Simulated assay, not measured.
Amino acid sequence: MNIDFRRLSDSDADALVRFLTGERWPFHVIGEVDDATARQWVAEGRFASEENRSFWIVADGTPVGLVRLMDLADDTPMFDLRIEAAHRGSGIGAQAVTWLTRYLFTEFPEVRRVEGTTRQDNVPMRRVFLRCGYVKEAHYRDAWPAYDGTVHDTVGYAILRRDWTAGTVTLPPWDDDPID
C-alpha cells in the first residue's frame, strides 16, 4: 500500500466534515462527531491556522486518515491521529507518526521535542509510539473523560530532536524522587 500525505486546503472543508462524522473515534473524547461540531471545528481553525496544520493520509490515492499538528508556534508541538476503522491495524499509524515526526523536525528547526497522548487502553497507539522511537514520559490517572461518561488514564509520550537525529532512545530518570 502506497501512503502519501497531502496538506488540507480550504476546499477540503466538506470532505473533512464527512470524514469526521462518518466514523466512530473510540479513543477520542468526542467519539461521535456530529455535523455541527465538525463544521464549528473547521471554522475555528482547529485543522488549519497559524498554530495548526492538518494532512490527509492518502493510501493508494484515497484519504484514509488525518494527521493534525498542533501548537506549531511552541517548541513542543503535539499531534492528533485519526485513521478510518477499515484501515486500522495495517501499519498506517506507524507510517504517519514517522512522517509527522520527520516533518516537524525538518520544517520547524526550533522544535526540540514532539509530544502525543493517548488513553491507557489504546494499546495499538501505544505500540506505535514505541515503534517510532517515542518514550513514555507521563501517566495521568483519571485524566481522559470518554464520550460514554467513563474516565480513563492518559499516557504521554515524546521524542526528542537529539534522539531522532542520533537514532537513539533515552529514558527519563524515573527514580529521582527526593527522599527526606
Rank of each mutant, 00 (worst) to 15 (best):
S54C: 08
L66F: 09
K136W: 07
L160P: 13
G31D: 08
G116L: 10
Q120A: 15
L69H: 04
G156W: 06
S90H: 09
M125D: 02
R112M: 11
G45C: 09
W144G: 06
A94D: 08
V123A: 14
T118F: 04
A146D: 09
L81Q: 03
P178Q: 02
V42H: 09
G149V: 08
D71P: 01
R53G: 00
F129P: 11
W144Q: 13
A146V: 05
V169Y: 01
W164V: 12
S90G: 05
G91T: 05
G89E: 06
A143L: 06
L171N: 13
R53V: 11
C132D: 02
A36S: 14
E107C: 14
I159M: 03
W56Q: 05
G133E: 06
A146W: 00
A43Y: 09
E107I: 03
V64C: 11
A86G: 08
T98L: 09
A143Y: 12
E50Q: 13
R112D: 11
V58D: 09
F79H: 14
F129H: 12
I92A: 05
A143H: 14
M78A: 10
T165G: 00
R112W: 07
W99M: 12
D175V: 04
G31Y: 02
T168R: 06
L72C: 05
V135S: 07
Y147K: 00
R161Q: 06
T101E: 06
Q120F: 12
R88W: 00
P124G: 05
A138K: 03
F129I: 07
D80N: 12
T37D: 00
D60R: 07
A143W: 14
C132K: 03
D176H: 08
E107Y: 05
S54N: 08
P173H: 05
V169C: 12
C132P: 05
V128Q: 08
R127P: 02
Y134F: 15
A158G: 14
W144P: 06
R46Q: 13
F129R: 04
T118C: 15
R39D: 08
A143P: 01
E107G: 13
V135I: 15
C132F: 08
A86W: 01
Y157K: 06
V97H: 03
V64P: 04
T106Y: 01
Q95P: 00
E115V: 14
W56R: 11
T168Q: 03
D177Y: 08
A73Y: 00
D34L: 10
D148Q: 07
